[in-house]
Design a protein around this nucleic acid. Structure first.
Lengths: 361, 361
DNA sequence: CTGAAAGCGCTTACAG
DNA sequence: CTGAAAGCGCTTACAG
């Protein structure tokens, strides 16, 4: 037997398709007895509405597109769960696509989303300008950006205060007695890279530590990149004593490299990572990290999108609608060197010596 | 301006909508000059076909549904990437849903997929019978099961040889000199739990080691469960010297517990985990695990589905179509005790003593 | 080589 | 309180 349509249900119940549609969608009053007949017919026939037909007729897909660089990155997985939590409550389905941080792929996936007529989009855009994004903006499809905004300054954004977080991370290393601090940075095109580097520099500056160019090392945002970065740093004549590694994947690579180089953490090298992980706590020593409120960031982005979908359009204001979360420093013990118990072992002391750390040693 | 439809394109190009459709889909010959006109019109208007309309007219959504228990489990993430790799080559889009291993949620998500009229489904089913799955089967929607099959014996399956893998894991612990071997098992409803336990028992039996009931501990398939399981095991008067932990999340929890209990691995407790991870290698000591070929499993499941979609229907054979992969033992060093250098330190020796390990000690 | 037109299964003014 | 019917934007026999 064929899959039943709304017409079959209507006939079976002895009503019009309009009535069936209205009881299904609860979109106008239908008498109790009629409602009952319709529900029974639906049950009897095993009727399932066609989302395609519905979408075509109503011009709403009730699908939200989510575009991330890589769902196997736990940061995005957790954000995704936040989005899913919020959006499924509101009756939306999600479609997910990975760009792998590649502009061409981003173009392709956004276009298929356009073709799917998604009702809204949440995207962590690559750094470059995108025709597809231009088109989405021009078509007035609700969109919120997550983690970064690329070259789009007038789209709502949910992200972390990366400057502050990186500043805190670096300050923490300084407080632990480090003066030779390397940083492993991600892809240059991605906003967060710039901001995390900025926070790092700001902290060094504030504590009058010279910013050594060789200590800034590209890790490509990926595991292998983190590995190679650490290898390179330790080929320097005067390698750093501590490392700020600016995302979770590079941290993994860095830890691999540290092990392969036969180094001990934190004795030989202090480590602070970006992004928290389930395994960070059981690493030896447990990893000190900056934690992002990933789930909340995801659900907030979804919330913003729902507002836009509801038509609360005050978008024509000039101020970009931003929601910036704070990173949280989780101190676990991968930073402290032998200096751990010296004068610089905590923020209180740090505050006192601001402006002259290089003098005391 | 409104979003252009195929009609607008047809008018702009001075042809029929049929012709436009055919050049887009390459589905019948169209003269070069006409083709050119159509393509130009498409470009000029920025035309994007409506997937909903297309789906409604063609009765094909070109969407494949993927139903997993939890995409934040790296096992599923990696499988998903394999699926994505294969299916996107074939021009399909994916829609993903998590069940959290809950029957009711599985029911809901499968029904929305039915409503979306997905062309096919890949599912890691919960253990219980499901009305939605019954319906999918009855509607002849191509479906392949992944990791497990639940109570459905006539659906194609891609999975691991869990008995063999668990047998190898346990044998490895035995070869490393352990005789008091605990196992942390997952949800009872899930097939893999049963099979992994079976392999464990088989190995013990083979080496004449008594199977101690207290050493079999429920870990609920989750991090917290793994934690509690280890806590419980170490409250036994005679706790095990080694643990086989049967999935990645429980392993994480177990490692946490081991740390919190102040135990050292492998000195105090040997560990072998199920599923490999990026961090397994940098744990101290690096974790010995059974690795599943996750990406290949995913792409193979997708391949099977594509075959079914292509209508190669030889399904009415009675033999269930199964593809069973082998797990790979990755030895890293979290199992060996002080016995590491004794008689039982490798498989060669193990073979010689088969049938009487308990006698030698 | 191409077109006219029915039909896919819904939603939604319009009408009563 | 409910129905008749147009229309959403495609695909696809059918026809020439």
């Amino acid at each position: 037997m064929q899959k039943p349509s709304i017409k079959d249900v209507a006939e079976h119940a002895g009503v019009s398709t309009a009535t069936v549609s209205h009881v299904i969608n609860n979109t106008r009053y239908v008498s109790e007895s009629t409602t009952k007949k319709v529900r029974e017919a639906i049950k009897a026939l095993g009727y399932i509405p066609s989302a395609a037909a519905r979408g075509l007729a109503s011009k709403q897909s009730r699908i939200i597109g989510v575009v991330f660089s890589d769902i196997s990155n736990p940061f995005f997985t957790s954000v995704y769960k936040g989005i899913e939590f919020e959006l499924s409550k509101a009756g939306y389905e999600l479609t997910l696509a990975n760009t792998g941080e590649q502009d061409e792929i981003q173009e392709v996936v956004l276009n298929t989303m356009l073709s799917r007529e998604v009702d809204g989009i949440i995207v962590a855009p690559t750094g470059k300008a995108s025709e597809a994004i231009d088109q989405i903006i021009q078509m007035d499809i609700p969109m919120v950006m997550l983690d970064r905004r690329g070259p789009y300054n007038h789209t709502p954004l949910v992200s972390l205060n990366n400057v502050q977080a990186a500043y805190e991370a670096t300050s923490h290393l300084i407080a632990d007695g480090h003066k030779k601090i390397g940083i492993v940075v991600g892809l240059a095109d991605v906003d967060t890279t710039k901001y995390r580097m900025e926070g790092y520099c700001k902290a060094l500056e504030e504590y009058k530590i010279a910013c050594v160019e060789e200590y800034i090392c590209d890790g490509n945002s990926r595991i292998e990149g983190g590995y190679r970065a650490v290898e390179n740093l330790f080929q320097l004549p005067d390698p750093p004593t501590a490392l700020f590694i600016t995302n979770n994947l590079m941290t993994l690579g860095a830890l691999h490299a540290i092990r392969d180089l036969g180094l001990k953490c934190p004795e030989d090298i202090g480590i602070i990572g970006f992004d928290d992980h389930d395994w960070a706590d059981i690493f030896s020593p447990p990893l000190t990290v900056i934690r992002q409120p990933t789930f909340r960031m995801g659900s907030r982005a979804a919330g913003k999108l729902i507002e836009l979908l509801g038509g609360k359009q005050e978008q024509d204001t000039d101020t970009a609608d931003e929601e910036i979360f704070s990173g949280e420093l989780i101190v676990r013990g991968s930073c402290s060197t032998q200096c751990h118990n010296n004068y610089f072992n905590n923020y209180e002391n740090l505050d006192r010596v601001k402006g002259g750390i290089a003098d005391i040693s």
